[in-house]
């Protein structure tokens, strides 16, 4: 059956505009990156294999790592205490290779909500969560997260009550931050693996909340069906 937009050469079959090919010449900084990378290889400081291994390691990091940390904290009060005292050590305890990352975990409660931003650039706990979403690096997010964070969160679909204190954390220097969201209601008795499926990337940035059990009921049932 033909799609609604099949005749429009500017739209994909699903009705979205095609992203233009990026056939422009390299920018100054792209050229600079390639030049430095090739010089490091020529001078024997790095090997191409080492560079590729580092890219692979970063690509293998994802919000699932953070979700495992959060879910463990939800199920193990002693682990949660260690996470809040030294989040880097708590991540390594679960076997995550976070390199030199210095991580601080900030806890959401009934009366406190936390939001992470880097107003100066794009600092993000990449060594735990992988690369940040594009919007995290946008000038709009970076400025509004400190100037009008409640209006910003409302646009993410999260309206905070006046009885909740919003704490914004600006990653201006050597620390990185992760939010420990509140455990969703209706998850009593769930194990850490099931809980981890509720933890979203945005809930660890503070622009969202974890999924509720109702949101994932069908997903969980499907996973069980697959053994």
């Amino acid at each position: 059956m033909p799609h609604d937009h099949a005749d429009d050469p500017h739209l994909s079959p699903s009705g979205h505009p095609y992203r233009p090919d990026q056939d422009e010449p390299l920018t100054y900084w792209q050229t600079m990156e390639i030049a430095i990378r090739e010089l490091l290889v020529e001078k024997g400081i790095l090997t191409p294999a080492e560079i590729q291994a580092e890219i692979d390691a970063m690509d293998s990091r994802s919000p699932a790592n953070g979700a495992a940390v959060v879910a463990r904290a939800w199920t193990d009060p002693e682990y949660k205490a260690r996470l809040l005292a030294d989040a880097s050590a708590a991540c390594r305890e679960l076997g995550f290779d976070i390199g030199p990352l210095r991580l601080i975990a900030v806890e959401n409660t009934e009366t406190v909500h936390n939001l992470i931003v880097c107003t100066l650039c794009s600092c993000y706990p990449r060594n735990l969560l992988g690369l940040p979403p594009d919007w995290y690096k946008s000038r709009a997010y970076r400025s509004r997260a400190v100037r009008e964070p409640r209006a910003l969160l409302a646009e993410f679909g999260l309206t905070l009550g006046r009885d909740v204190t919003l704490r914004v954390h600006d990653s201006t220097a050597d620390m990185r931050y992760v939010v420990l969201p509140r455990r969703p209601e209706g998850t009593e008795g769930w194990d850490a693996e099931a809980l981890a499926a509720l933890v979203t990337r945005d809930s660890m940035i503070g622009t969202g909340l974890p999924r509720s059990p109702g949101d994932v009921a069908s997903t969980v049932a499907g996973a069980e069906g697959n053994g």
Binding site: V146, R147, E148, P149, R150, A151, R162, T165, L166, R167, V168, H169, D170, S171, T172, A173, D174, M175
Partner: peptide, 19 residues
Amino acid sequence: ELWGDGAERPDDTVDAEIY
């Protein structure tokens, strides 16, 4: 402190690392 009367909620906070 940061935004004066323009603050969305005066008691909200921003934490930052300063040398």
